[in-house]
């Protein structure tokens, strides 16, 4: 039986009827056609589907859409506001992606990390991203990408970063 839910995604409110078994990732990809969030496994390991739920990174393949009812979801599509977000810029500058399939999830985990720890150490970055699998890069350039973003965001601290903060 379909159930009505209201989820705010990247600042836009969506009221839709969904089947209780519909996963949040399918809601995002198929109902809203936001296809930046990817599906890379079915056991909550790869992290390609990572989004923020009320600001906290979750694997959207392990959250039901009905569980997100009344909550805020932030996806990769929200990061660039009037230009690339420093995290996106970091991934480009430091060659932090190759095939790019894991990258949206990787960036959302990085985003959450930098909210919590604006100046993370290498170990903190590696630990924070250990739930996101990348098969292409060997992670070294991803670590550098996050550091790049941290520096950039620190330098621009006077200018608030808006991505994910819209409501």
């Amino acid at each position: 039986m379909a159930r009505p839910i209201t989820i705010t995604v990247n600042g836009d409110k969506h009221s839709l009827e969904v089947e209780p078994r519909l996963l949040l990732v399918h809601f995002i990809r198929e109902r809203l056609r936001l296809t930046g969030t990817h599906i890379g496994c079915d056991t909550t390991h790869c992290g390609a589907c990572t989004v923020l739920l009320d600001g906290v990174p979750v694997k959207s393949c392990t959250v039901l859409a009905v569980q997100a009812d009344g909550r805020q979801v932030t996806t990769v599509e929200s990061l660039a506001v009037g230009g690339l977000h420093p995290i996106q810029e970091g991934f480009k500058q430091e060659h932090g992606l190759q095939c790019g399939f894991c990258t949206p999830g990787m960036m959302m985990s990085s985003f959450a990390l930098l909210q919590e720890k604006p100046d993370p150490t290498e170990d903190e970055i590696r630990w924070a991203l250990s739930g996101n699998i990348c098969r292409c890069t060997g992670y070294m350039n991803i670590v550098k990408s996050v550091r790049y973003a941290a520096q950039k965001m620190k330098a621009a601290a006077a200018v608030p970063v808006e991505a994910g903060a819209r409501s």
């Binding site: 990769v76 599509e77 990061l79 690339l84 991934f91 480009k92 992606l97 790019g100 960036m107």
Partner: peptide, 10 residues
């Protein structure tokens, strides 16, 4: 290749 892939528009 990167701009599309990092903005979720690939």
């Amino acid at each position: 290749e990167d701009p599309e892939l990092i903005t979720g528009t690939g």
